[in-house]
């Protein structure tokens, strides 16, 4: 708690933003094919202006590498903010989308799309898969989140330990559903389910980036507008009601927006756990604990972590690549255990 650095330091925030830009450039430059600065510039210019295709490096940069790095940044930022919001609602530091059923529910919804759309060919032209996938992920995420939330509430008050335990159970249910789907699926679909459950950005494209940017901006703006409400929630639900906060409506809206955000991103890149846990924990040390700065810090911090994790996933076993979910879990799981120990013994 006692910290040398002044809370909400502008210098630190600017520093984080610069670090994010540096990470994005590094993420775009490094990989199976290294890309130079000039190729980035021409690749971007030709791509945007629909000019004739340049060399291989320029094409790789514009259609593969750059959207991938941007999607990983948006995803990391959004998952960190979403973890922060879940923690604010439950007043508990060991809660995030990967642990409360939200991500697993989204994964189940998306697996259904992978397995059943090939069986119903008429469906896909009607609803483009780019919208069907997030829509089903949202439905699954919402169902799982509501189930966890309703089951862990006593008289409308949610107990954090119960929430985590019910989350474990609902996660197990969702993953058994996913397991069943990949068992009955044909080989390519099964592979895409497996890969997707480990999380990764290799399928990133500009359409996904566009949709994610819109949803992320909308959600983060909404949360920032509700920053004071999130602060007041820290007094506990009873006190928040005394202050005139209508708790049911507030909690429902926050959960809905949060689920939409997590589900959309999970639909593209699969289940990536622990980012929503580590980043808010870290950023609380550098802010005054109010949610307006915290949301901004968490978004930038989460984006940096994810861009670097994705870079690591591409470089560790190059030219093959690791699913990024494995990288975040290796970093995140020990921190999660430390957090639980800290809660138990301090």
């Amino acid at each position: 708690m006692a910290n040398q650095m002044k809370p909400n330091s502008k210098h630190l925030f600017v520093g984080l933003c610069l670090l994010l830009m540096a990470s994005i450039i590094a993420g775009a430059a490094l990989g199976a094919i290294p890309i130079e600065g000039s190729d980035m510039y021409y690749g971007l210019r030709n791509g945007i202006l629909h000019h004739e295709q340049g060399n291989i490096a320029q094409q790789v940069f514009f259609s593969l590498r750059f959207p991938r790095v941007l999607l990983s940044a948006i995803t990391g930022g959004s998952l960190a903010v979403s973890g922060l919001i879940m923690q604010a609602i439950t007043r508990n530091p060991i809660v995030e989308a990967g642990l409360t059923g939200t991500s697993a529910g989204a994964a189940l919804g998306a697996s259904l799309v992978f397995v059943f759309t090939p069986l119903l060919p008429g469906l896909v032209p009607l609803f483009s898969i780019h919208f069907l996938l997030p829509a089903m992920a949202f439905a699954g995420a919402l169902a799982a989140t509501l189930l966890v939330y309703k089951m862990s509430g006593v008289n409308g008050y949610v107990q954090a330990t119960t929430l985590l335990l019910v989350g474990v159970a609902v996660n197990a249910m969702a993953f058994s559903g996913i397991g069943f789907l990949s068992y009955i699926a044909r080989d390519p679909q099964a592979r895409s389910i497996t890969f997707w459950n480990l999380g990764g950005f290799s399928g990133a494209n500009w359409l996904q980036v566009g949709i994610s940017v819109m949803i992320a901006i909308a959600a983060v703006t909404y949360f920032t507008k509700k920053a004071f409400t999130l602060d007041v929630l820290q007094l506990g639900e009873k006190e928040a009601v005394y202050l005139g906060l209508s708790i049911r409506v507030t909690r429902r809206n926050l959960l809905l927006v949060n689920t939409l955000l997590v589900a959309t991103l999970t639909a593209w890149c699969g289940v990536i756990a622990f980012v929503g846990l580590i980043i808010p924990h870290l950023m609380r040390k550098y802010t005054d604990g109010t949610h307006r700065p915290l949301i901004a810090y968490c978004f930038v911090g989460g984006a940096i972590l994810m861009v670097l994790a994705d870079l690591a996933a591409r470089l560790v076993m190059a030219p093959a690549e690791l699913p990024v979910g494995i990288v975040t879990a290796i970093i995140g799981a020990p921190i999660f255990i430390l957090l639980i120990r800290k809660q138990l013994f301090y």
Binding site: P7, N92, G236, D288, T290
Partner: peptide, 11 residues
């Protein structure tokens, strides 16, 4: 009143 996360008195 117990507050789970560090916050400043003035806030």
């Amino acid at each position: 009143i117990h507050i789970a996360f560090p916050m400043k008195v003035l806030d």
